Simulated scan of single mutants.
Amino acid sequence: MVWRSLVFLIFSLQSSWLFAETVSGAVAANPSTGLVYKEPFNSGAISQLALGLIVVIGLIFTLAWLLRRYSGLPGQNKSLQIVAALPLSAREKVVLVQAGEQQLLLGVAPGRVNLLASYDNPLIEVGQKGDFAVKLQQALSRVKQE
């Protein structure tokens, strides 16, 4: 309801502004008919177009910044994060997720997520750089040996 009122207000202000501009800067082409001719590409129209474009682009950038800044959903927890991911094919991948003190190895495919393994001791420390595939193979070989 608020959006409808806002759109109505904008269009009514715009139409009254254009009407006032037409009356003030108009030249009568034919006085007997009362037709009004106004040059469509004058400096005022071009500057108005440029100013409107700058305002719209500025509004887009402002909204994008606000969305990026305040996109956090309520209830998000920083202790749940993706440590590493390994694509297996175009649509499947293996993801190592840090959930509190545990690390979970998840198989992710379109439409489903499967728990492959759960580790109490971390396979990879959060923020540690390294070759995930090699460490995953080492961890899987340790699991098979046990």
Rank of each mutant, 00 (worst) to 15 (best):
R4D: 12
S5N: 09
L6K: 09
F8Y: 07
F8K: 03
I10H: 12
F11Y: 12
F11R: 05
S12I: 10
L13A: 08
S15T: 08
L18S: 13
A20D: 12
A20L: 12
S24I: 06
S24K: 07
G25Y: 10
G25T: 12
A26N: 10
V27N: 10
A28C: 06
A29T: 10
A29E: 12
A29Y: 09
P31N: 04
G34Q: 05
G34D: 07
Y37S: 13
E39S: 06
P40E: 09
S43D: 11
S43L: 10
G44K: 07
A45W: 10
S47W: 12
Q48F: 07
L49S: 13
L51E: 14
I54P: 01
I54R: 00
V55N: 02
V55L: 15
V56A: 14
I57C: 14
I57T: 15
T62W: 14
T62A: 14
L63W: 05
A64Y: 04
W65H: 11
L66E: 08
L67N: 13
Y70G: 00
P74M: 11
N77C: 06
K78R: 13
L80A: 01
L80K: 00
L80G: 03
L80M: 08
L80N: 01
L86A: 01
L86T: 02
S89L: 05
V94Y: 00
V97R: 02
A99C: 04
G100R: 07
Q102D: 15
L105S: 00
L105E: 13
L105N: 02
L106C: 06
L106H: 04
L106Q: 12
G107S: 13
G111D: 14
R112Q: 15
R112H: 15
L115H: 05
L116P: 00
D120E: 15
L123M: 15
L123H: 01
I124H: 03
I124K: 02
I124R: 02
I124W: 04
G127E: 11
D131V: 15
A133K: 14
K135F: 09
L136I: 04
Q137R: 14
Q137M: 10
S141N: 14
S141A: 15
R142F: 07
K144L: 13
